[in-house]
Design a protein around this nucleic acid. Sequence first.
DNA 1: ACCTGAACACCGTTCAAGT
DNA 2: ACCTGAACACCGTTCAAGT
Lengths: 208, 208
Amino acid sequence: MDHEDRQLSLERIVVTVVELLHAEGVDGLKMRRLADRLGAGAMSLYWHVGNKEAVFDLALDSVLEYRAPPGIVASEDWREDIVHILEDWRAGMLRHPWSASLLPRRALGPNILSRLELLSKTLSGAGVTDADLNVAIWSLWNYVIGATITRANFDLSDDDRAAAQQRLTGLSQHYPTIERSRLLLDNDWDGAFRKGLDFLLDGLAPRP
Amino acid sequence: MDHEDRQLSLERIVVTVVELLHAEGVDGLKMRRLADRLGAGAMSLYWHVGNKEAVFDLALDSVLEYRAPPGIVASEDWREDIVHILEDWRAGMLRHPWSASLLPRRALGPNILSRLELLSKTLSGAGVTDADLNVAIWSLWNYVIGATITRANFDLSDDDRAAAQQRLTGLSQHYPTIERSRLLLDNDWDGAFRKGLDFLLDGLAPRP
DNA sequence: ACCTGAACACCGTTCAAGT
DNA sequence: ACCTGAACACCGTTCAAGT
């Protein structure tokens, strides 16, 4: 609440809405509450942003900014580059658990387009032909989006996990194979993400 | 509107909410409007359902019901079985475009658990070990969820697609590789889904 | 057991009005 | 150019009351 004395600006709005979303989640974003945090009158926002959807678009794109480590330009191993790009993208979204679900529902902002361009360029440099590029990009997009939305929403508290385990074991006669796979119980999300990604990359460009 | 004279029941509520969601989308679902469609007083729903979230859960699970073709039990080709299971799942969700985004945010209902059990059993029967089952299921889940949410939300009208094309070409100096991949312009969603899925399956269980 | 209307505590957004 | 409060048209849900 140290914003009270300053003027409104798009930048301040963006910073503050990300804070608010972090604190209260998607459903907690109310125009009045956002104005409050900015120390502004309830309706002052509308001079700057149009409507609430625009606020979401701003928050989402801001979170997807790519802070490229300036050293690493092109490594020897394109596969390592792809994994790095996608893990960084996923990590950025997981830092803001509200963001992943929003991404496939809004128009693509400049920051996500930059990430996709970098991904495309790396795939292309690795020898993927233009004809295959579309499928390659979408496959990786689908995998990352699905994995991140799921992880952001199913990252249960210990209590919840215990309850889910309880529930599944109670139903184990109906779902024996799920039970055997320990579907909701294995906690190694990062490892599972990486392993599945490796499988997908194996298919996209078989290793020699 | 031919429901006016009948009594309320969970089944009628489920059928009607799916109709309403189909007609108005997720944001169009209002408790009052749902009651209207049922020919009931505005607040009568609350005797049956608890709250609005429960209504969403009911709608989602109902849409995910698996109508197994009773003939096909186990074909020769497990890979074909997997593809069929996942394409049927995806098609079911695309028939109700509001459903895919909802699925990873809610607790798993009985119908989606049945589908996952069938998927697990098929993978297991194909030789995937219990240790690998978790990763295999999640990889396929991630891919299907990501693909379906994206398709349900990016299935643009012709006008929108023209606008998006216009916008991307205007930015082609910034995103040349995306432009070359014709990312948003290729319209063959089904084909792209299948091709990407084949890549993933190649990785999960390489063909001889 | 099942349904209802009135009422409460919210929302997003418009708009005329202020500086 | 930038901000504001009052007001409008909604919401989900509670609750006492009806049959």
